[in-house]
């Protein structure tokens, strides 16, 4: 590599670094409050996929635990929410949530708003649009907010050519899309969006050290296969 090549790389390297926003700058509340425990609120479903609320609920537990937080068992909290008339999380999205701190001992609540969740068998895609909001039970402030718009490409591209080949591919795509469980894309969306969440105290390796790491954009958009 020539000297000029190296210089160009240096400029590219530093210019890309200059644009990054650190996690501490993007989510100052998370670092100021350092929540330890998080309770998962029942998802707010704005789609026609009526089962999304129940099925999506438990998928948040594992990625949040892996981030190093104490996460209340979703099976137990759901029973509590149902008995305490807190199943409709939209009632609490912008309201005072301090009582959840007093009843559960949770430092923060995570709300999810499912804006889109649909299958397109012809195009061979499953698309979700989910907003994630973490609010403090101490201050009611939003500590973390990010949205994920993710498309799972389930299309099948065979090797056969011609009109018949095209028809076979379309049929295979439709079948593949139909048998792919919608939950798969929800889980993947969690993984991508929450990868940006500052770590909690049970991630001993990174706790308190990830503030200078680069954060992602407020809206994550992507297509995966």
């Amino acid at each position: 590599m020539s000297l000029w090549g190296c210089l160009v790389m240096m400029v590219l390297l530093f210019s890309s670094c200059a644009e990054t926003v650190t996690r501490e700058a993007r989510y100052p509340g998370m670092y100021a409050e350092r929540p330890v425990s998080i309770a998962i609120m029942p998802p707010i479903n704005q789609t026609q996929f009526v089962e999304a609320k129940e099925y999506f609920y438990t998928t948040l537990y594992q990625p949040l635990c892996e981030k190093g937080y104490y996460v209340f068992s979703p099976q137990l909290t759901m029973q509590m929410f149902q008995s305490e008339s807190a199943y409709d999380a939209e009632l609490f999205l912008n309201a005072d949530i301090s009582r959840f701190g007093k009843v559960l001992g949770a430092d923060a609540l995570i709300f999810t708003v499912i804006k889109e969740w649909r299958k397109n068998a012809v195009a061979g895609t499953i698309t979700v649009d989910i907003q994630y909001i973490i609010r403090s039970t101490k201050t009611n402030e939003i500590l973390y907010q990010r949205e994920g718009k993710l498309t799972l490409d389930t299309s099948v591209q065979g090797n056969s050519s011609g009109a018949l080949g095209l028809l076979l591919d379309m049929a295979a795509t439709a079948v593949n899309t139909a048998v792919t469980d919608k939950i798969v894309v929800g889980r993947k969306c969690n993984a991508y969006v929450l990868s940006d969440l500052p770590v909690g105290k049970y991630n001993e390796m990174l706790y308190g050290k990830d503030g200078t790491m680069a954060s992602g954009s407020p809206v994550f958009t992507g297509t995966i296969r």
Binding site: C65, Y69, Y70, V71, F72, S73, Q75, L76, Y202
Partner: peptide, 15 residues
């Protein structure tokens, strides 16, 4: 990495 069960596990299994 932690060598112990995740948060909520004992509560959920116990219940």
């Amino acid at each position: 990495q932690r060598g112990i069960v995740p948060p909520g596990y004992n509560a959920e299994y116990g219940f």
